[in-house]
């Protein structure tokens, strides 16, 4: 059982919870995730990246968007309520070293899993620029934390309500083209389509780029194969081989199709979720 110690609402449907999970808090490294299951019988297993951890207090911090029936059920839990199952830390940790200049691109809720990586890269001595993209100002998360952790933060919104108007690939391309600011390494986490275009942006500049993938997952331990993606023509499991891969090698088009596997069925679940 994992007690919810703290709960904040970051925007309309984005929640930030701090949960008791002492073993995971001690063991986790940047880039790793957990599987959360609100109860033991009928709830889904939801993969969530660990945003932060406090080994001393034995807590981990998770940020999620309540967009489906299961995440909405999770969002209904209050402080002092308990989450029955949390498994982790899962996946391979991010490979951290001093690359020199690094650009980290986070889109929407993807900004949350990016945060621990930004911190770790900064701690390793990198100059870190963070680009945060969102549909609109209200959906930008973790801006103060990112400003504290990184050397430079660029905000981009689709509607121009904050920062630059447009998409994250515009400032990313600018940086790649700049002689002084060209990154040696790029990390991108966000919607698949955004990661795809980040990869296409950095490819002509030959800048090593990794993407952290969040595919459909059941067990998270390599058993079901549901999370598989094609990387450089080879099938890889996001849960045990990832979640981070060379973004230039990932077949994002296939990944996007697979992410929609249960669209029809989930619409049905969402209706069930609404009625309860």
């Amino acid at each position: 059982m994992h007690k919810i110690i703290k709960k904040n609402r970051l925007s309309e449907n984005v929640f930030d919870i701090t949960v008791s999970a002492p073993l995971i808090a001690e063991e986790r490294q940047a880039g790793q995730f957990v599987i959360v299951q609100a109860d033991n019988e009928f709830s889904e297993r939801i993969p969530l990246t660990i945003v932060d951890a406090d080994a001393e207090k034995g807590t981990i911090r998770l940020i999620f968007a309540a967009i489906g029936a299961s995440t909405r059920a999770l969002a209904r839990l209050k402080e002092d309520d308990e989450i029955v199952n949390i498994l982790g830390p899962l996946g391979k940790p991010t490979h951290i070293e001093n690359f020199g200049r690094v650009v980290c691109v986070g889109g929407g809720i993807g900004t949350a899993p990016l945060y621990p990586i930004v911190k770790a890269l900064k701690a390793a001595g990198n100059h870190v620029t963070v680009i945060i993209g969102a549909r609109t100002a209200e959906l930008i998360i973790l801006e103060p934390e990112m400003r504290a952790a990184a050397d430079n933060v660029i905000i981009v919104t689709d509607d121009g309500s904050r920062g630059e108007k447009g998409v994250v690939t515009a400032p990313l391309k600018r940086l790649c083209e700049s002689a002084a600011e060209k990154p040696n390494f790029v990390v991108t986490i966000g919607p698949a389509v955004m990661m795809k275009f980040c990869a296409l942006t950095t490819k002509p500049f030959n800048i090593p780029t990794i993407a952290s993938l969040n595919t459909i997952m059941i067990d998270g331990t390599g058993m079901c194969g549901g999370c598989r993606v094609s990387v450089g023509g080879k099938t890889q499991f996001v849960c045990v081989d990832g979640p981070e891969f060379d973004a230039h090698q990932v077949d994002f088009d296939n990944m996007m199709l697979r992410l929609g596997s249960f669209k029809k069925e989930e619409e049905h679940k969402c209706r069930i979720g609404l009625s309860t």
Binding site: F42, G225, T235, L257, R258, G260, H268
Partner: peptide
């Protein structure tokens, strides 16, 4: 093999058995 609708038996069965997806009205796993 990575098309939508191709499953490892492990995934198909885990959804149905462990996650009880066969109970379409109650289970949240599709």
């Amino acid at each position: 093999e990575n098309l939508v609708g191709v499953f490892a038996a492990n995934e198909y069965l885990t959804r149905s058995n462990l996650m009880k997806a066969y109970d379409k009205d109650r289970a949240l796993t599709p």
